[in-house]
């Protein structure tokens, strides 16, 4: 029984505050759907969960252990699908996938790749080089990647982009199968993906107005004349309200 949760996450991109005070919890078999307007930080949150991005504050824990303490363990248990498909135009679909299996130390790699290709209905493309794939086929190849090797956590950033209706149904089926074996799926999507009773995490709830955050955090202004300036500039706005 795995358990993945976080408390009080704050994420800063450059100098922009993306979200703050975010918490979530998931256990084996759960799915979390991330929702929010553009720029609400869905991709950033998935990258934080993957460990690609360090949160400004707060911690993510897997079975009670901070993921920052053992990055390699966390990375070997997760599969991440980003915006980009990472497909090399000069390598065949099979060769593209092979690298990721080798890096995860998968045994009987060819059989595993065959199974993944069948699952996404692209087995006939195995020998085609990347440059001849349509964008939907590329996306499906990228999805096949997450089936290679054992994993307990899927982080899918807009997995449906470029997929047709049938492929979306296949993806739903894959997610259902993965959850049935005890996996946790966290995904963001713009269209409805048929996933059974997902927990919904609306990132708009965690958007903190920059003004509030600035006044809370003393490292951009202080209790001296700075905050006096701040007060001065905030007050007219409050007066309007």
């Amino acid at each position: 029984m795995a358990d993945f949760n976080a408390s009080d996450l704050t994420c800063l991109r450059g100098e922009r505050l993306v979200f703050g005070g975010l918490s979530f919890a998931a256990k084996s078999g759960d799915a979390i759907m991330l929702r929010g307007r553009n720029g609400a930080g869905k991709s950033s949150l998935l990258r934080v969960m993957a460990g690609l991005l360090a949160p400004r504050s707060g911690a993510l824990c897997w079975n009670g252990e901070n993921i920052a303490d053992d990055r390699a363990a966390h990375q070997s248990r997760l599969q991440y699908l980003g915006h980009q498909d990472a497909i090399k135009p000069v390598l065949s679909v099979r060769d593209n996938l092979r690298l990721w299996g080798q890096l995860r130390g998968v045994s009987q790699l060819d059989a595993v790749i065959d199974a993944a290709l069948h699952a996404l209905d692209i087995h006939h493309l195995a020998r085609i080089t990347g440059r001849y794939l349509s964008s939907g086929q590329k996306r499906r190849t990228a999805l096949a990647r997450i089936l290679i090797g054992q994993s307990d956590l899927w982080l899918l950033d807009e997995p449906t982009v470029g997929l047709d209706r049938e492929s979306c149904a296949e993806l739903s089926q894959l997610i259902a199968d993965f959850r049935a074996t005890g996996g946790i799926v966290i995904y963001s999507t713009h269209i409805d993906l048929d996933v059974k009773n997902p927990n919904i995490l609306d990132l708009d709830d965690f958007a903190i107005p920059m003004v509030e955050w600035l006044t809370e955090h003393a490292d951009l202004n202080d209790d001296t004349n700075d905050s006096a300036n701040m007060q001065h500039s905030v007050s007219p706005q409050e007066a309007v309200q």
Partner: peptide, 14 residues
Amino acid sequence: EDGTLELLALSPVS
């Protein structure tokens, strides 16, 4: 550019 680098960073290999 094609996102391979971040997947490499996410692989269990150092």
